[in-house]
């Protein structure tokens, strides 16, 4: 099973750095962004991101807005909301709007990782489904082409 490519979005630099280091150490490929806009830019350049860990409360474009933008452009990417207690409600709203899960700061690394893996697995599964669906469709279209050809011949 491949490890996930993670994008950390959080305005608190020191927090993000350390977390990145720790995730790196656990063989995750981690990119970081310190604002919502930066995250969107990075996603635009790098399609390899599997899971976004997104802080709810950020200056400028806040977590919910960023979530909405991501989900709109990259519906397959899973987003895990990271929140303080004051913003549990927003996290819940976020879940309603398509976030995969949420985590409370400060969070246990193990829990974070398990959630990231879940998200990644889910994404993989999703992608596989899409792939098989596509293959079926191609198969169908091939068959139908064959039918057309055979009927023509």
């Amino acid at each position: 099973m491949t490890t996930a490519n993670i994008l950390l979005v959080e305005d608190e630099e020191t927090f993000i750095e350390t977390m990145a280091k720790r995730l790196n150490k656990r063989d995750f490929a981690v990119s970081t962004a310190s604002s919502g806009q930066e995250a969107l830019d990075m996603l635009a350049n790098n399609l390899k991101i599997d899971v976004v860990i997104l802080d709810v409360k950020m200056p400028g474009m806040d977590g919910l807005e960023t979530l909405q933008a991501i989900k709109q452009k990259y519906p397959l990417i899973h987003v895990i909301m990271l929140t303080g207690h004051a913003t549990v409600e927003s996290a819940i709203i976020g879940m309603k709007k398509g976030a995969f899960d949420y985590l409370m700061k400060p969070c246990e690394m193990d829990i974070l990782i398990s959630k990231v893996n879940d998200a990644n697995d889910a994404k993989r599964l999703h992608e596989e489904k899409i792939q098989t669906a596509r293959i079926k469709e191609i198969g169908k279209s091939v068959e139908s082409t064959r039918d057309i050809i055979s009927s023509l011949s």
């Binding site: 608190e12 020191t14 927090f15 350390t18 303080g84 207690h85 700061k105 400060p106 969070c107």
Partner: peptide
């Protein structure tokens, strides 16, 4: 909360 999160 944030400083505590960072410390942890």
């Amino acid at each position: 909360n944030n400083p505590v999160a960072i410390m942890v």
